[in-house]
Design a protein around this nucleic acid. Structure first.
Length: 229
DNA sequence: AAGCGGTCCAACCGCTCGCTG
DNA sequence: GCAGCGAGCGGTTGGACCGCT
């Protein structure tokens, strides 16, 4: 049995949003808050799919969005984050206050890719274009658990033999409070984690007390400090 | 001015994940 | 354990816009 559609497609508008639709959506969310996107269109009097409403709100109507050009700092931060996280646009967006995953994804594909290529850097692997790819590195979270292996380089290279396996690497995750707006490169050291500068391999700042890149020596990678709020 | 090709970005689509019964 | 559902994510697309000829 197939999944039921997320909305009655026959009775929904598609394409560009009108000013009136925007106003209705904003007014409804201001009055009732976000949540239950499936029922929102009907409640708000919109002939739109819930997904479409959610996307419109998140990518365009949210009051905390920062519109306009990306700064050089943001560019470099995106490149660093992409080299660490790959195409995890929502995670990258979580580190750029006021920016959306869609915006960053578009910006990456239109500007940064080209920028890296012009520097002679492969935008997928973040390595010099004429450099031979290294043997792939596989990280295993649990002994013998094939499903939990991940490629350290996301997908740039196919699995090759011999596989280099880091023994019993325990990437224990810890929960930190929701992200608060702060200077981009200021160290935000969590209780047992690592400051963001170090997690990106950026130069240490005076306040930094981290001992190792990615917090591997401490056994902690504060994933939530990278994950979106 | 018209035609064309390239660029950009808003929006859609399909899939996965997590939750619930 | 399984199925259904809603939410969220990443890839892709369509069309508006712009510069060049």
């Amino acid at each position: 049995m197939g999944r039921s559609p997320c909305c009655e497609k026959a009775h929904t508008n598609k394409g560009a949003w009108t000013k009136e639709e925007d106003d209705r959506l904003v007014a409804y969310i201001r009055a009732h808050g976000e949540g239950c996107w499936r029922s929102l269109p009907k409640a708000a009097g919109l002939l739109r799919c819930g997904k479409s409403c959610r996307l419109r709100w998140i990518n365009y109507l949210r009051p905390d969005l920062k519109r306009g050009n990306f700064t050089d700092d943001e560019d470099e931060l995106i490149i660093k984050l992409h080299s660490l996280l790959g195409n995890k646009w929502s995670l990258i967006a979580g580190r750029l206050p006021g920016r959306t995953d869609n915006e960053i994804k578009n910006y990456w594909n239109t500007h940064i890719r080209r920028k890296l290529l012009s520097r002679g850097v492969d935008p997928v692997t973040h390595r010099p274009i004429n450099e031979q790819p290294p043997a792939n590195i596989t990280i295993s979270f649990e002994k013998g658990d094939e499903d939990h292996k991940i490629s350290a380089l996301e997908k740039p290279f196919k699995l090759q033999e011999p596989q280099f396996k880091i023994p019993d690497l325990n990437l224990e995750l810890c929960i930190s409070p929701p992200f608060q707006e702060e200077p981009l490169i200021k160290p935000v050291k969590s209780e047992a984690g690592v400051c963001f500068s170090c997690s990106l391999g950026l130069p240490k700042s005076p306040e930094c007390k981290c001992s190792n890149f990615l917090g591997l020596s401490s056994g902690f990678l504060d994933f939530r400090s990278v994950e979106m709020k």
